[in-house]
């Protein structure tokens, strides 16, 4: 049995929220940390298993290299797709400033 990763902390939750583009207030941070810790604690049965000799399964029904013929065919109507966007210009999606942002 290996050492368990340390229990998830408030800082961890704040970090993954940033990665996931979510803003949490103090109360949410507190609440989510407790709830996620409880779920991860339940997962300790899986974490504790020694499974190096067991291959991982990423997909239940193995199908490899599913390709279609490289031929032109109908696609979605551009106007209809753009109509669903919050903001467009010159037949393109429009977003606020990107350049000059710090990550």
């Amino acid at each position: 049995m290996r050492a368990m990763p340390a229990r998830i902390t408030r800082d961890d939750v704040a970090h993954v929220a940033t990665l996931a583009r979510l803003a949490l207030d103090e109360d949410e941070l507190e609440r989510f940390t407790g709830q996620l810790a409880k779920v991860l604690q339940h997962a300790a049965d899986v974490e504790a298993l020694e499974l190096d000799d067991v291959p991982p399964t990423s997909h239940p029904y193995p199908l490899a290299n599913v390709l279609r013929p490289d031929l032109p065919g109908p696609t979605l109507e551009r106007a209809e797709v753009l109509a669903a966007a919050p903001s467009t210009e010159d037949r393109q999606f429009k977003v606020p400033t990107i350049l000059g942002e710090s990550p």
Binding site: E47, L49, L51, V54, P56, S58
Partner: peptide, 12 residues
Amino acid sequence: AFYGKAQRVRTL
């Protein structure tokens, strides 16, 4: 520890 292990459990 988490995702990798869970995928191996899927095999089990």
